[in-house]
Design a binder for these strands. Structure first.
Length: 193
DNA sequence: TAGGCCATCTGGTCCT
DNA sequence: AGGACCAGATGGCCTA
Protein backbone atom coordinates (compact mmCIF):
# COMPACT_ATOMS: atom_id res chain seq x y z
CA UNK A 1 0.00 0.00 0.00
CA UNK A 2 1.11 3.46 -0.65
CA UNK A 3 -0.27 4.87 2.44
CA UNK A 4 0.93 4.56 5.95
CA UNK A 5 4.41 3.17 5.85
CA UNK A 6 6.78 6.00 6.46
CA UNK A 7 9.05 6.56 3.47
CA UNK A 8 8.34 3.10 2.24
CA UNK A 9 6.95 4.51 -0.99
CA UNK A 10 9.17 7.18 -2.47
CA UNK A 11 6.62 8.10 -5.07
CA UNK A 12 2.88 8.05 -5.14
CA UNK A 13 1.48 4.80 -6.33
CA UNK A 14 -1.18 4.96 -8.97
CA UNK A 15 -4.00 2.83 -10.26
CA UNK A 16 -1.72 1.47 -12.92
CA UNK A 17 0.98 0.64 -10.48
CA UNK A 18 -0.44 -2.06 -8.29
CA UNK A 19 1.45 -3.34 -5.36
CA UNK A 20 1.45 -7.01 -4.44
CA UNK A 21 -0.54 -7.74 -1.37
CA UNK A 22 1.51 -8.41 1.71
CA UNK A 23 1.41 -11.88 3.13
CA UNK A 24 -1.74 -12.19 5.14
CA UNK A 25 -0.12 -15.00 6.98
CA UNK A 26 0.65 -12.99 10.05
CA UNK A 27 -0.74 -13.02 13.50
CA UNK A 28 -0.96 -9.27 13.64
CA UNK A 29 -4.20 -7.53 14.47
CA UNK A 30 -6.15 -5.93 11.66
CA UNK A 31 -4.87 -2.49 11.18
CA UNK A 32 -1.33 -3.39 11.91
CA UNK A 33 -0.74 -6.02 9.30
CA UNK A 34 -0.65 -3.48 6.51
CA UNK A 35 0.68 -0.57 8.40
CA UNK A 36 4.25 -1.69 8.51
CA UNK A 37 4.49 -0.77 12.12
CA UNK A 38 3.86 2.90 11.56
CA UNK A 39 2.84 5.25 14.29
CA UNK A 40 -0.63 5.27 12.81
CA UNK A 41 -0.96 1.56 13.14
CA UNK A 42 -0.16 1.69 16.78
CA UNK A 43 -2.70 4.35 17.41
CA UNK A 44 -5.34 2.81 15.21
CA UNK A 45 -4.90 -0.45 16.98
CA UNK A 46 -5.21 1.35 20.25
CA UNK A 47 -8.28 2.62 21.99
CA UNK A 48 -8.40 6.30 21.13
CA UNK A 49 -9.75 5.84 17.67
CA UNK A 50 -12.81 3.96 18.75
CA UNK A 51 -13.65 6.36 21.50
CA UNK A 52 -13.07 9.29 19.24
CA UNK A 53 -15.44 7.92 16.67
CA UNK A 54 -18.15 7.13 19.13
CA UNK A 55 -17.76 10.57 20.57
CA UNK A 56 -18.19 12.08 17.15
CA UNK A 57 -21.64 10.60 17.07
CA UNK A 58 -21.48 9.42 13.51
CA UNK A 59 -23.91 6.67 12.75
CA UNK A 60 -24.65 4.68 15.81
CA UNK A 61 -27.24 2.06 15.31
CA UNK A 62 -27.52 -1.41 16.66
CA UNK A 63 -23.85 -1.42 17.46
CA UNK A 64 -24.58 0.79 20.39
CA UNK A 65 -21.67 2.67 21.84
CA UNK A 66 -19.57 2.19 18.79
CA UNK A 67 -16.95 0.07 20.48
CA UNK A 68 -18.65 -3.18 19.75
CA UNK A 69 -17.29 -4.93 16.73
CA UNK A 70 -18.95 -7.48 14.55
CA UNK A 71 -17.74 -10.84 15.66
CA UNK A 72 -16.92 -13.29 12.94
CA UNK A 73 -16.01 -15.96 15.39
CA UNK A 74 -12.57 -16.48 13.96
CA UNK A 75 -9.02 -15.96 14.86
CA UNK A 76 -6.71 -13.06 14.25
CA UNK A 77 -5.38 -14.66 11.11
CA UNK A 78 -8.81 -14.96 9.52
CA UNK A 79 -9.70 -11.43 10.55
CA UNK A 80 -6.53 -10.23 8.98
CA UNK A 81 -7.33 -12.00 5.73
CA UNK A 82 -10.83 -10.53 5.71
CA UNK A 83 -9.40 -7.09 6.35
CA UNK A 84 -7.03 -7.41 3.44
CA UNK A 85 -9.85 -8.54 1.19
CA UNK A 86 -11.97 -5.68 2.38
CA UNK A 87 -9.16 -3.25 1.72
CA UNK A 88 -8.81 -4.56 -1.79
CA UNK A 89 -12.52 -4.18 -2.45
CA UNK A 90 -12.45 -0.66 -1.10
CA UNK A 91 -9.50 0.13 -3.33
CA UNK A 92 -11.35 -1.20 -6.36
CA UNK A 93 -14.38 0.81 -5.40
CA UNK A 94 -12.36 3.98 -5.13
CA UNK A 95 -10.69 3.25 -8.44
CA UNK A 96 -14.08 2.94 -10.10
CA UNK A 97 -15.09 6.18 -8.50
CA UNK A 98 -11.97 7.85 -9.82
CA UNK A 99 -12.61 6.44 -13.28
CA UNK A 100 -16.04 7.99 -13.15
CA UNK A 101 -14.48 11.30 -12.15
CA UNK A 102 -12.09 11.04 -15.08
CA UNK A 103 -14.97 10.35 -17.45
CA UNK A 104 -16.77 13.37 -16.06
CA UNK A 105 -13.67 15.52 -16.56
CA UNK A 106 -13.59 14.50 -20.19
CA UNK A 107 -17.30 15.11 -20.61
CA UNK A 108 -17.30 18.71 -19.49
CA UNK A 109 -15.54 21.29 -21.63
CA UNK A 110 -13.21 23.48 -19.66
CA UNK A 111 -10.27 25.74 -20.17
CA UNK A 112 -7.33 23.51 -20.90
CA UNK A 113 -4.52 23.72 -18.42
CA UNK A 114 -1.61 21.52 -17.55
CA UNK A 115 -3.16 20.81 -14.23
CA UNK A 116 -6.06 18.41 -14.24
CA UNK A 117 -9.29 19.38 -12.55
CA UNK A 118 -9.56 18.40 -8.94
CA UNK A 119 -12.57 16.41 -7.84
CA UNK A 120 -14.31 19.37 -6.32
CA UNK A 121 -13.62 21.45 -9.42
CA UNK A 122 -14.96 18.68 -11.60
CA UNK A 123 -18.18 18.45 -9.66
CA UNK A 124 -18.63 22.21 -9.57
CA UNK A 125 -18.00 22.60 -13.28
CA UNK A 126 -20.29 19.71 -14.08
CA UNK A 127 -23.04 21.31 -12.07
CA UNK A 128 -22.57 24.58 -13.90
CA UNK A 129 -22.42 22.79 -17.21
CA UNK A 130 -25.76 21.16 -16.52
CA UNK A 131 -27.20 24.48 -15.47
CA UNK A 132 -25.94 26.15 -18.59
CA UNK A 133 -27.31 23.45 -20.84
CA UNK A 134 -30.61 23.59 -19.05
CA UNK A 135 -30.74 27.33 -19.62
CA UNK A 136 -30.04 26.84 -23.29
CA UNK A 137 -32.74 24.25 -23.64
CA UNK A 138 -35.27 26.36 -21.81
CA UNK A 139 -34.41 29.36 -23.96
CA UNK A 140 -34.87 27.30 -27.07
CA UNK A 141 -38.09 25.79 -25.86
CA UNK A 142 -39.78 29.15 -26.13
CA UNK A 143 -39.08 29.24 -29.85
CA UNK A 144 -39.62 25.60 -30.63
CA UNK A 145 -42.48 24.52 -28.46
CA UNK A 146 -46.06 25.65 -28.14
CA UNK A 147 -46.85 27.17 -24.77
CA UNK A 148 -47.51 24.45 -22.23
CA UNK A 149 -50.62 24.44 -20.12
CA UNK A 150 -48.61 24.98 -16.95
CA UNK A 151 -47.91 28.57 -17.84
CA UNK A 152 -44.14 28.78 -18.13
CA UNK A 153 -41.83 27.23 -15.58
CA UNK A 154 -40.17 23.86 -15.97
CA UNK A 155 -41.22 21.94 -19.06
CA UNK A 156 -43.24 18.83 -18.47
CA UNK A 157 -41.84 15.33 -18.74
CA UNK A 158 -43.86 14.82 -21.90
CA UNK A 159 -42.06 17.63 -23.67
CA UNK A 160 -38.59 16.45 -22.73
CA UNK A 161 -38.15 14.35 -25.83
CA UNK A 162 -39.31 17.16 -28.04
CA UNK A 163 -37.00 19.55 -26.24
CA UNK A 164 -34.10 17.27 -26.98
CA UNK A 165 -35.14 17.07 -30.61
CA UNK A 166 -35.35 20.84 -30.83
CA UNK A 167 -32.02 21.16 -29.12
CA UNK A 168 -30.32 18.89 -31.61
CA UNK A 169 -31.95 20.77 -34.47
CA UNK A 170 -30.83 24.02 -32.93
CA UNK A 171 -27.28 22.76 -32.70
CA UNK A 172 -27.30 21.69 -36.31
CA UNK A 173 -28.54 25.10 -37.40
CA UNK A 174 -26.51 27.32 -35.12
CA UNK A 175 -23.37 25.32 -34.61
CA UNK A 176 -21.19 26.58 -31.83
CA UNK A 177 -23.64 29.11 -30.45
CA UNK A 178 -24.56 26.89 -27.55
CA UNK A 179 -20.99 26.15 -26.71
CA UNK A 180 -20.17 29.83 -26.75
CA UNK A 181 -22.97 30.47 -24.31
CA UNK A 182 -21.71 27.69 -22.09
CA UNK A 183 -18.21 29.06 -22.16
CA UNK A 184 -19.63 32.38 -21.11
CA UNK A 185 -21.19 30.66 -18.11
CA UNK A 186 -17.95 28.90 -17.28
CA UNK A 187 -16.10 32.16 -17.56
CA UNK A 188 -18.47 33.91 -15.20
CA UNK A 189 -18.20 30.98 -12.84
CA UNK A 190 -14.44 31.12 -12.75
CA UNK A 191 -14.64 34.84 -12.18
CA UNK A 192 -16.76 34.34 -9.10
CA UNK A 193 -14.88 31.43 -7.60
C1' DT B 1 6.73 25.50 5.23
C1' DA B 2 1.74 25.51 5.21
C1' DG B 3 -2.11 24.11 2.85
C1' DG B 4 -4.52 21.54 -0.76
C1' DC B 5 -5.33 17.28 -2.81
C1' DC B 6 -5.11 12.57 -2.95
C1' DA B 7 -4.74 7.33 -1.96
C1' DT B 8 -5.29 4.17 1.37
C1' DC B 9 -6.66 1.96 5.68
C1' DT B 10 -10.16 1.21 8.89
C1' DG B 11 -14.38 0.14 11.37
C1' DG B 12 -19.29 1.16 11.70
C1' DT B 13 -23.58 0.92 9.29
C1' DC B 14 -26.62 -0.23 5.51
C1' DC B 15 -28.30 -3.31 2.06
C1' DT B 16 -29.14 -7.58 -0.44
C1' DA C 1 -23.50 -13.28 6.35
C1' DG C 2 -20.96 -10.70 3.41
C1' DG C 3 -20.31 -6.95 0.32
C1' DA C 4 -21.14 -1.97 -0.43
C1' DC C 5 -21.05 2.39 1.31
C1' DC C 6 -19.45 5.98 4.23
C1' DA C 7 -16.59 9.06 6.82
C1' DG C 8 -12.55 9.78 9.87
C1' DA C 9 -7.64 9.40 10.11
C1' DT C 10 -3.14 9.42 8.23
C1' DG C 11 0.81 10.25 5.45
C1' DG C 12 2.84 11.47 0.86
C1' DC C 13 3.29 14.67 -2.97
C1' DC C 14 3.01 19.16 -4.91
C1' DT C 15 2.74 24.11 -5.17
C1' DA C 16 2.57 28.93 -3.71
Amino acid sequence: MKSKGKALRPSRRTWSDPEPEPEPDTEAEPGSSEQEGSEASVRIGGSWRGSLRSGAGKRQGAAGGGRRRRQHGSGAKERSVRRLESNERERQRMHKLNNAFQALREAIPHVKTDKKLSKIETLTLAKNYIKALTTIILDMSGACLPASGGGGGVPSEASAAKLLQCYQQHLEEEGEEGLAQYLHHVHSFTQHS
